[in-house]
């Protein structure tokens, strides 16, 4: 089960407003390599894992990703808090305003709504873990792209942190893969 705690892995405190940057970061909320897809992928795949380490790791990383989803939502909210239609338009994201105003909607930076087609669940531990390792690399690469676009130090420090977590997750999934493969041998 999950118990909500009124805290994030690192505090999210953004002082500037920037609806355009928010619309880029939205991709890590509901985009193809975002945190929603990551958490759903791991929390779904775990049901078919048989190795105890595998069940635990997918549960624990899936849970951490849910926390990251919340942090991304918080960044987007703070970057757009109090900004109106004209501001969104000036920042070039008037189309987002028309559909969602200041709401956080799970979609990619290019406006495609979230889809479960971004992930798989094959009941094949090796196939699933290999997908997970690729997913971590793609999430890391997306954070790299966001860092190239971002010049707000409050945002950059959190994005760097989240990027680093993807590297750690990749490492842990790699260790799990070794463990599963050595059991087959």
């Amino acid at each position: 089960m999950f118990i909500f705690s009124k805290m994030t892995q690192i505090p999210v405190k953004i002082n500037n407003k920037n609806p355009r940057l928010a619309s880029y970061i939205l991709s890590q909320y509901g985009g193809p390599d975002g945190e929603l897809g990551a958490s759903l992928r791991y929390l779904s795949q775990r049901f078919a894992q048989t190795d105890k380490s595998g069940i635990a790791l997918l549960t624990d990383i899936g849970t951490e990703e849910l926390g990251h989803l919340e942090m991304i939502g918080s960044i987007i909210t703070q970057l757009t808090k109090g900004e109106g239609a004209k501001s969104f338009d000036r920042y070039g994201v008037g189309d987002y305003y028309i559909d969602h105003a200041n709401g956080v909607y799970p979609a990619s930076a290019s406006g495609v709504p979230f889809s479960a087609a971004y992930l798989q669940s094959k009941a094949d531990p090796i196939a699933d873990i290999m997908e997970d390792m690729a997913a971590e690399q793609k999430a890391r690469a997306t954070y790299d792209n966001i860092l190239r676009m971002c010049d707000d130090p409050d945002v950059t420090s959190i994005i760097r942190y989240l990027r680093e977590r993807e590297v750690v997750h990749f490492q842990r999934f790699g260790e799990l893969l070794d463990r599963l493969q050595s059991k087959i041998r």
Binding site: Q9, P11, A56, L57, D60, E64, V168, R172, E175, R179
Partner: peptide, 17 residues
């Protein structure tokens, strides 16, 4: 608080493998 729980999470993942 957040640093302390982060340390717990990081060790948790490490211990899983």
């Amino acid at each position: 608080v957040s640093e302390a729980w982060f340390y717990v999470t990081d060790l948790n993942l490490y211990l899983d493998t």
